[in-house]
Amino acid sequence: MIHRVINKIKLLAVFALGAVMLPAQDIQLSMLEYELRIPEQTAQSELWADLLQHDRQWYTSPEAIRIAENILLYQRNSGGWPKNIDYTETLSAVHKKELTDYADEPLATIDNGATYTQMRYLAHVYAQTGDKRYCLAFLRGLDYLLKAQYENGGWPQYYPLRKGYYSHITYNDDAMIGVMRLLRDVAAGGSEYRFVDENRCFMAQKAVAKGIECILKTQVVVNGELTAWCAQHDVKTLKPARGRAYELPSLSGKETVDIIWFLMEIENPPPEIIAAIEGAISWLQRVKINGIRQKRVTSPKSPTGYDKIIVNDPAAPPIWARFYQIGTNRPFFSDRDGEMYFDLADISVERRVGYGWLGYWPQELLEKFYPRWQARYVVNKRMPQK
């Protein structure tokens, strides 16, 4: 699903790069009208995309209010929301009581669109109904996101923190970028966020600036060249880190794309951001895979009834791997044994069909939108001024 973002923002951005402090920059949402994509995770992602695109009147409907009431019930004591919840279901009285009695579990997270998506929905409903409960729940969520941010600018997947990969700086499935987009919109004072007080707007500005600083610092440098990002980075060293057993330290052909989108939305970007984008784009162009395509075939041995295979096809468009080996740029796959494989056929059918190993994530960015951005901010700046 595609969201077209048209509102402009200004943020105070101070980037700390080593001992060098860059001057304050005006950061605005680019008027190139980039089409931003909801992370392709589950059918629930598409459901939320639909829920956030209704006309204003719909948010006063009984259905919209019922969903908003469910969102209130699922908000955890921490201020955030759990993931993978069907907020459209009709809750029984018993279920509602359980949610009230056990308001700490399940834990709140920003994974799979959780928290920042529910907050956007509540803002829509509050804008049309004026019900203060939705406003207050949104503000609790905002405080949660601000509190969850690390001092280095990153966000963990879960807050309060959980041991393990959950505490890594998490770009996986666009978790951190989703948070930063919401905070950016709040700081802009858009029509649906005008209820947010000045202090919180300023805190959102600072959080986005710190987040951008973290993005720049976590971009992986290989042989002196800026490349891409891993799906998660260690909070202390900022180096690529392991996620789940089959998510090894790597350069990501998927998460890198949405990070680039976010950076490209910055109006009049400073040289450090231009360099980050140019480095990542150059890497994406180098690692594209030609001459193959992924094919779905019937398989009675698969738990899903189908399997995925790779076939040769000289006419196929370029495709990208989810993970690339750092240093060699060799595409790889993995399994629950934590090992690295270089052939999709070598991993279990469960992981083969249960994870997005190959995709066309950068295609539209490279073919359509990056050239426009480059012409505006790179090519034009190289031309002598008349």
Rank of each mutant, 00 (worst) to 15 (best):
D258Q: 14
L216Y: 06
S167H: 11
P300M: 11
M203A: 12
K301Y: 14
L36E: 11
F369Q: 12
L226A: 06
W361L: 06
L248Y: 02
P317H: 14
A43C: 05
K10A: 03
G164E: 14
N7V: 07
R133P: 01
T170F: 04
L51R: 00
R376H: 09
K206P: 00
V220A: 07
P23S: 15
E192V: 11
Q285R: 15
A245N: 08
L251K: 00
D343G: 02
C230E: 04
L36I: 15
T88F: 00
I281G: 04
P62Y: 15
Q219M: 11
M31K: 10
I169Q: 03
Q149N: 08
E364N: 12
Y355P: 00
P331M: 10
K381C: 09
A127P: 03
A123T: 02
A241F: 07
I169S: 03
Q44K: 01
E265C: 06
I110F: 03
N223Y: 13
N290T: 12
L365Q: 10
R162T: 12
Y193G: 00
L145P: 02
P362T: 12
P23V: 11
Y246A: 02
I319S: 00
A175Q: 03
V5H: 12
F262E: 01
I260V: 15
W283G: 01
G153V: 08
M340T: 14
A43S: 13
Q75F: 11
S78N: 06
A345S: 15
L107C: 11
R382G: 14
N112P: 01
D346H: 13
I2V: 15
P331W: 05
F262H: 08
D26T: 13
R244P: 04
T256L: 05
V14K: 12
A13F: 05
R200H: 13
G224Q: 05
K239C: 09
G253F: 02
F323E: 08
I85V: 15
I309R: 14
Y150L: 08
R184D: 02
F333G: 01
Y116S: 03
V14Y: 03
W81C: 05
L182S: 02
G164P: 04
I281V: 15
I260N: 00
A108P: 00
D50N: 01
W229V: 06
N380E: 15
I2D: 07
L248H: 01
R194P: 11
R296M: 14
M203E: 13
R140P: 00
D343W: 01
R66G: 04
R244Q: 10
F138H: 05
V257K: 00
Q363P: 04
I281N: 09
Q41F: 07
K295H: 10
L136K: 13
R140A: 11
K97G: 06
W373G: 02
V220E: 03
E69G: 07
Q28N: 12
R181F: 12
V378E: 08
A114E: 02
M264C: 12
R244H: 05
S348W: 06
Q75R: 09
E69D: 14
D131S: 07
G164H: 09
E213T: 07
D174T: 10
E278V: 12
C135K: 15
P106F: 09
R120F: 01
L251P: 00
Q149S: 04
N329E: 14
P270F: 08
W357F: 10
Y134K: 03
K386Y: 08
F195W: 05
K83H: 09
R162F: 09
T100L: 15
N7S: 13
L183F: 05
T170Y: 00
G354W: 08
